[in-house]
Design a binder for these strands. Structure first.
Lengths: 336, 336
DNA sequence: CTGAAAGCGCTTACAG
DNA sequence: CTGAAAGCGCTTACAG
């Protein structure tokens, strides 16, 4: 039914091996032979069967990218960056969304062993320290964005601690002293949220500012809606505050919405800052002060590490912290 | 090296076929046999080689989704919806981004014939009528979002015409008469932009309002930045206008930013409306009046059509127009 | 520069 | 309910 390499070989009067050589760009082929083969491919409309190649070669040219969801602009923009970086190495990216659900994250982890992908860029949110052993596979993998896990795999991390301290310092330097924080996950001790919260508390302490539990509000899935809800909740308590550090940008943008809806002036009454520097942060009203964790750098570095591992590199595991950049904008500085 | 089905069979004292039956959930297996096989799988850490299965079965369980870029929230949210819909049919989605580039879109089109995916959800922006013949493949495919192509494939369309007319009618009903439009692509005759622009002009005509060329501004890639630039350009011309219809939401959000930066009041001075109803439209300041093309409905319908085609359905091609919904918000109504 | 042989790890009929 | 045989369409050594 489908045209095979053998059919092409017969049509061109060569062996299947030669067709394979042409398809794979093997350099030492007489121009004449190549022309014949290409003509036969064209005449028969031949397309190589990738599954057969994969079976024989043991590689697929595909890497997986497991992220919670693409509706979150941070992950969507990260995915675009990963696709671009993989393309530079001739690799295709297969995206799997896990919904930040532990079970689905563990399923994604098993995927490379099914030989559908050669390696995995892995950005888990639901996994905890008890799952570290699950990462001890011998499949090439690079962990992204988190710093939960020390040890068994490469990872490329956002500089959560210094990034957070920079943005909180900025708020303090603006004279803010009652800085609320939204998006915390009270029971979580290891994730991005916990790390950023700890860094926030540390920075306040450096300035001798008390860390007030009543100014910390949990924020579910870090969607815009969670940010709006958290802010509504905080306003409902009647607590005074003059700034809000949202643990990511979508939370911050939701919070800005809730503040604006109640006529609170930003930044005059309350300054707002986030984390991620998604594109939207440059176009919101007001524009959003935030930390840029350098997505492109992260994606590129992670793909390079993964490519090395896939090539058989067995050196010690790397822990790379990406550089960050603080962007101060209207939500803390006012219009300029 | 890797554990194979044969190894498992030997360990369990059965034939490879029986292992295959267990792996694939074949129902008629003695419980005892199944237990033995599962124990052997566990003991050896066996994982099926998907490439081998694909080669033999001729199917992969993977469908492709080709979209311009995930940084565009419309496509990111569509991708999430497609992944969810595919999951309900036990299918995995492989996302390919094309950058709306014609060459890369044509490459994506050839992908299913390499047997890496069983079918394709295809959302081209760069293709024109001259490429229609390229769609006459016999690979299962469903076209998304556009209505460029009549004929050789199924497609699920956004209701661009009625959706646009509804939102423009809304602006007219608010008393707006000088309604600018941003995001047009002057040389394009067949894409989403051209269709929405034509519907805009048609609606104006219905109300006896002249269509002014000087109020139509082109808008490149439909990013936030393009919207801000287009709006800056329009303001620079000194043209009077009391409303803006942006051809999508990101353009509208960029335009809102540019208007706010110049102190133009929304909607008092200028009302703004978009198209897509991305999540952000509910949280911007002001919130954005827009058309919801029902992404989830589109994704679900498209996957169902694709599944039918993959199952061998050869009936006539379907053209399905998804229902739309107009959401009126602050950018045209003011605060409530 | 090109060919003949073997086999990657599964599943598809076909038996029994 | 389970097995033996054949083969999916390629690529990997190995010759020459």
């Amino acid at each position: 039914m489908a045209v095979t390499m053998r059919d092409v070989a017969r049509e061109a009067g060569v062996s299947p091996k030669t067709v394979s050589n042409v398809m794979n760009g093997y350099p030492y082929i007489r121009a004449e032979t190549r022309t014949k083969v290409l003509a036969a491919i064209d005449a028969l409309g031949y397309r190589m069967n990738i599954s057969a190649r994969n079976l024989k070669s043991g590689r697929t040219g595909v890497i997986g990218l497991a992220v919670p969801e693409l509706s979150n602009p941070y992950f969507a923009e990260l995915a675009d960056a990963a696709i671009a970086a993989a393309g530079e190495h001739g690799l295709t990216v297969m995206i799997e969304t896990t919904g930040a659900d532990r079970e689905r994250e563990l399923t994604a982890l098993a995927r490379p062993r099914g030989h559908l992908v050669d390696g995995l860029l892995y950005s888990p949110l639901g996994l905890g320290p008890e799952d570290v052993d699950q990462l001890r596979t011998n499949t090439p993998m690079v962990l992204l964005g988190e710093r939960i896990f020390h040890g068994p795999v490469d990872h490329v991390m956002i500089d959560n601690v210094e990034g957070t301290k920079a943005v909180v310092r900025h708020l303090l330097d603006q004279g803010r002293r009652r800085i609320a924080v939204i998006g915390i996950r009270p029971r979580e001790r290891v994730g991005t949220g916990a790390i950023r919260y700890a860094a926030y508390a540390e920075m306040l302490a450096e300035y001798g500012v008390p860390v007030l539990e009543e100014l910390a509000v949990s924020g579910g899935k870090w969607h815009r809606s969670s940010g709006a809800d958290a802010m509504a909740e905080l306003l409902g308590t009647g607590q005074r505050f003059d700034a809000v550090f949202a643990l990511n940008d979508t939370l911050a943008l939701g919070a800005i919405r809730a503040l604006a809806a109640r006529g609170v002036r930003i930044p005059d009454d309350v300054a707002v800052a986030g984390f991620d520097n998604i594109d939207e942060a440059s176009y919101s009203s007001p524009t959003l002060t935030t930390v840029d964790p350098s997505r492109v750098h992260i994606a590129r570095t992670a793909v390079e590490l993964l490519v090395q591992r896939m090539a058989g590199d067995v050196s010690e595991h790397h822990e790379i912290v990406a550089p960050f950049e603080l962007h101060t904008r209207e939500s803390t500085l006012g219009p300029n």
